[in-house]
Amino acid sequence: MKAQKKEIPLQPYVSMELLTTLTQVLYREARLLDQERYDEWVNLLAEDLHYHMPGIETRYRRDKYDQVADLNRMAYYDDSKEDLKKRLARLETGTAWSEDPATRYVHLISNVEVELTEKDDEFLVLSNFYAYRNRNERDDDMLIGHRSDIWRRVGGGFELVKRQIILKQNILLSKNLNIYL
């Protein structure tokens, strides 16, 4: 049975302190990605991470099939932490030709909202991203979309347990996706 789309009800606002802290977490993560500090980025990822960026076809409004919830579908990313580490291992080989010269990245993160979940130590964190890439002479593209995360409090910080990325492009308007969102 295909999953059906449903709206999630709005939750009460959280404290300014929690909102500010988790916003700082997202900004710091964005800085690590901009600077390709992937070892440090991986340290932010929980062992039980699910990093998911579905491929979304254009369908009519009357079509209630939930393409995001159907995990059998092709996805740009449908990764565990181990899967992401395999992808990142490519950069360590010294032969990832299309990464040298390096791509120039900027991750802009906005519209941050935090909500409590049923688990005391886990928080739903919603955000929008504008990821800009420029490489070589004039390769230039932008990726814009929504993220829905679960961050878990561990020790003095937070780790990413779940991230769902919804890119707003139908056809990916660039040759590849050498970026994490």
Partner: peptide, 17 residues
């Protein structure tokens, strides 16, 4: 397939360029 020959795949990324 998506980790090798998707747009973010470890193989595909070097072809398009």
């Amino acid at each position: 397939v998506m980790q090798t020959f998707g747009p973010g795949g470890a193989f595909e990324m070097d072809d398009g360029e």
